[in-house]
Amino acid sequence: MSPRDGHGVVAGLNPVAKLAASLLIALPLVVTVDAVSAGVALLLELPLLLMAGLGWRRFWVRTLPLWIGAPATAVTIALYGATSGAVMFEWLFIRVSEGSLALALAAFLRVLAIGLPAVVLFVTVDPTDLADGLAQIVRLPARFVLGALAGMRMLGLLVEDWRALALARRARGVADTGRIRRSLGMAFALFVLAIRRGSALATAMEARAFGAPSPRTWARPSRLHAGDGLLMIAGLAISTVAVAVSIAVGTFNPIFGPA
């Protein structure tokens, strides 16, 4: 990983290319559950992850949910998954077999192979750049894109609002006891505040002609370049090679196959 966050080769590419690469990697892996395709994809993703421009600390912090969720998924499938092959351990509702262990390993690698590129590639994405790309390149409706962008920009204010509400209620001596009741009351107050702020934001955007039916102009043009194309080709190559290797060794296990 680069010692400086956000300065990798991939960090400066178009967010639409990052989104497309993540989808190209994930979609083929979704249709099969086998350890070979997921393992090959994970190995091929390593150079892409190294060029993402994240420091080691930020990488582990951002991907921590994956490192928790993947083993938890594997353990659950190993203990309670479909039984096939020799049974290695059995107790009450728990039955560990060769088939459930193989499926657990495939699920573990699959979660990492799908999740790591999606998380790492989008850490360096600016929401405004993503909105520009979705509206100008993907041609999504500008009104929908700008509304979603405005909503995302407001998410950071919820934490500050929650802290301000807690301080205000404590200053008035309201709900010093009863954590559940206090939390429910603050959640309702935050909900009302969010609706009022959303209404004011919608009015302000309409006043600035954000909802006008005519084609709008963009302050920052968003275009795909050669590097963006190479990233999408890399995503397609990773999934293609992973599935091809899985088919070649005979481990390809489509989830929509015959029962």
Rank of each mutant, 00 (worst) to 15 (best):
H225Q: 07
R172G: 02
V249L: 09
A104H: 01
V159Q: 13
S97H: 12
H225T: 02
V241W: 13
L116C: 12
G173F: 09
M154Y: 02
I25N: 13
L165W: 00
L112Y: 09
A171I: 11
G211K: 03
A142E: 05
A20I: 14
A202F: 00
G211W: 00
A72P: 05
L231G: 06
R196E: 15
L184R: 15
G6I: 07
L149M: 11
R182I: 00
G229M: 05
S37K: 04
L101P: 11
F93I: 09
G69R: 07
S183T: 14
P213M: 02
A135I: 06
V249T: 13
A226K: 08
E90F: 07
W162P: 00
L64H: 02
W67I: 14
A150M: 15
S214P: 05
M205T: 10
L155I: 01
G198F: 04
E160L: 01
S97W: 12
V36L: 01
A52V: 04
S2T: 12
L105P: 10
R172L: 02
R4G: 08
R62H: 12
A21N: 05
I233K: 03
A131L: 13
K18R: 15
V33A: 10
F93L: 08
S183D: 10
V145G: 13
L27Q: 07
A237D: 03
A259K: 00
I247N: 10
A148K: 04
S214A: 10
I180D: 06
E98V: 09
R143K: 15
L54E: 04
L92K: 12
L27A: 12
I137W: 12
L230E: 00
S246K: 14
V119N: 13
D176E: 14
L155A: 01
T63E: 12
L201V: 14
G178I: 02
L13S: 08
G151Y: 08
S97F: 15
G211V: 04
H7G: 10
L158M: 11
P258R: 06
F108K: 02
L224T: 06
L23Y: 03
G6D: 06
D129W: 03
W218H: 08
G8F: 11
L64C: 04
M205F: 03
P71L: 10
D129F: 05
H7W: 13
H7P: 08
L146V: 09
P215Q: 00
A242E: 07
L155Y: 05
L105W: 14
L105A: 15
